[in-house]
């Protein structure tokens, strides 16, 4: 980051956070494009114009306006949290997230998670067929994660959304499950405490620390991504599968397998549709008001 960029960034803080979330990077690009190379100080006229316009937004009627990008930031954070949560069960992938917590690493993590979960499914398929089908919720969540990352391509960097403290908590949440076996041996904690509840509590802390327009949306999207596959699979069982009370039927026919996996397709289609709606590169699919 050049001296000039840092100074413009500081000037842009005059705008409210919600406005910055949408326009900061773009405005910086315009400001820097209009500056000759080697310039270190913002042009006074530009600085004055920014202060005037920024204060007008801050104290203007529309300062409470919603900005669509907040949803994209929320999608990025939620996707990362869900991916990490699934990843907690797959401790080996966690080290990747610790080494580099950028969007790319998180996207990679979601990809790894998809593969691992599909692998798990295949592993169980040969032994207890129906149990393998019950694992469909994991790939379903993985699909949601991938879709959320696709929709969040131009969101702010996650580091910027959650802050340094939030990033620290994420790193701890990811590291903690590494010590599951030790903690359980010490009989202080249950396996679930370390692998699920502790990370969840830390994630809640991360969400609380996020700035306002994004915070409530992360809460919504994150919970939605966790709950939606379960609700979908449960209602699928009750309606389409006839609400069988025995969770592990003796025989599994191909039709049953297809039906059991169908929710995955539903989630994929719904997810792609949503991503199209939020995806920035698609013509006319970015809504003005969210």
């Amino acid at each position: 980051m050049t001296v000039l960029e840092r100074r413009y960034r500081r000037l842009l803080r005059v705008y409210p956070a919600a406005h910055r979330a949408v326009y900061e990077e773009e405005m910086l690009g315009v400001l820097l494009a209009g500056s000759p190379p080697g310039r270190r100080l913002p042009r006074p006229a530009d600085a004055f114009d920014l202060l005037r316009a920024g204060l007008a937004v801050r104290f203007g009627r529309r300062s409470k306006a919603d900005y669509g990008t907040a949803w994209r930031d929320a999608a990025a954070v939620s996707a990362l949290l869900v991916a990490l949560l699934i990843g907690d069960f797959v401790v080996t992938t966690c080290t990747e997230a610790v080494s580099d917590l950028t969007d790319r690493a998180a996207a990679l993590l979601s990809g790894v998670t998809v593969l691992v979960e599909l692998g798990t499914l295949m592993f169980w398929l040969g032994r207890v067929p129906w149990a393998a089908m019950r694992l469909a919720w994991a790939p379903t969540m993985a699909v949601l994660v991938a879709v959320a990352f696709a929709a969040a391509r131009t969101a702010r960097p996650i580091r910027g959304v959650v802050g340094r403290f939030g990033l620290g908590m994420i790193v701890i949440a990811v590291t903690v499950p590494l010590f599951t076996s030790w903690a359980v041996r010490a009989t202080v904690l249950q396996s679930d405490d370390v692998a699920v509840w502790l990370p969840l509590a830390l994630f809640a802390g991360v969400v609380i620390g996020i700035d306002r327009p994004v915070r409530s949306r992360v809460a919504l999207v994150f919970l939605g991504m966790l709950v939606a596959p379960i609700v979908l699979l449960e209602s699928w069982d009750l309606t389409v599968m006839g609400g069988s009370t025995t969770w592990v039927p003796d025989t599994v026919d191909p039709g049953g397998v297809l039906l059991a996996l169908a929710p995955l397709a539903v989630v994929a289609v719904a997810g792609l549709w949503l991503a199209r709606r939020f995806a920035p590169r698609e013509r006319g699919h970015v809504r003005v008001h969210e």
Partner: peptide, 23 residues
């Protein structure tokens, strides 16, 4: 200038006179 331009762009977006084409 950037401040003026983005004040106009933001208002025009909210009024529905312009929209994002692509990023």
């Amino acid at each position: 200038r950037a401040g003026t331009l983005y004040a106009a762009l933001d208002r025009l977006r909210l009024d529905g006179l312009i929209e994002i084409d692509r990023e």
